[in-house]
Computed example of a mutant assay.
Amino acid sequence: MNTPFRRLVTGILLALAALSGCREGGDTVENTLEPIVDVEARLARYATVRLDADLSSLTSEQRRMVRLFIEAAEAMDRAFWKQAWGDRDALLERIRDPAAREYALLNYGPWDRLAGNEPFLSGVGPKPPGARFFPPDMTKDAFDRALAAAPDDLAEALRSHYTVVRRDEDGGLRAVPYHEEYAEEVRFAADRLRRAAALARDPGLRRYLELRARALVTDDYRPSDMA
């Protein structure tokens, strides 16, 4: 695999890995959301940077692979919105101010990441400490007590980096694997990686992509990490 293509693949797949393991926020708000800070001033702290690459040295198959990697990353971006907030489109529809909407897109929700996650929209409370990975009313002490009382296999699943914690019908805790919670997104991304693997001429890259696709739908990342 030539060096420029290796660098490009590495960058995109690192983005995929980063998005698949993040833990974030919650999505309970009032109907109309108005800015409660000067969002235009806060937007001015950011700079727009165009990410570009010279693809002239890539083969036609490699260019098709890049497109597939980008589509996989876009699916992970949709999953990250679910982790950070919930329903992205429903949130944006409630924001009428264009600058506030743009700021919500930058922050993946209504909390300012450069200001200690304080809310910048009306009707939005503090960012839940357990994000969308735990029941909204759960405290750390309550979670620790539940872990201490849980069977070993359940406690291990609840602590996993690849599960979200939900309540069952009786109010107890259950662990939902990422590949179930974000099934639509990870299946889409895995499909794109498998398609890219079919185009790869390098055997090592092909095997890695196949293993990474399998990891997305099983949450078992070690084989692909070691490939």
Rank of each mutant, 00 (worst) to 15 (best):
G86E: 00
E93G: 04
G86K: 00
P110D: 08
D89K: 07
M65A: 09
E102N: 08
L105Y: 07
L91A: 05
R96D: 11
D87C: 01
Q83R: 07
V66S: 00
V66I: 03
A84D: 01
Q62T: 00
Q62C: 02
V124T: 12
F69M: 09
M76Y: 02
M76H: 04
G116Y: 13
A100K: 00
R101V: 13
N117I: 09
I70T: 05
A84E: 03
G125Q: 13
G116D: 12
L92S: 03
D87G: 01
R78I: 03
L68D: 05
V124D: 09
P119G: 14
P98R: 01
R88K: 10
L106C: 09
R113N: 15
D77T: 06
G123E: 08
R96I: 03
L114W: 10
G116M: 14
A79G: 02
S122W: 15
R64C: 01
R88D: 00
E71C: 05
A115W: 07
E71A: 08
E74M: 09
L68R: 08
D89V: 08
L106P: 07
Y108T: 13
L106H: 06
A75Y: 06
L114N: 11
I70N: 04
G116H: 12
L92A: 02
R64N: 02
L105Q: 12
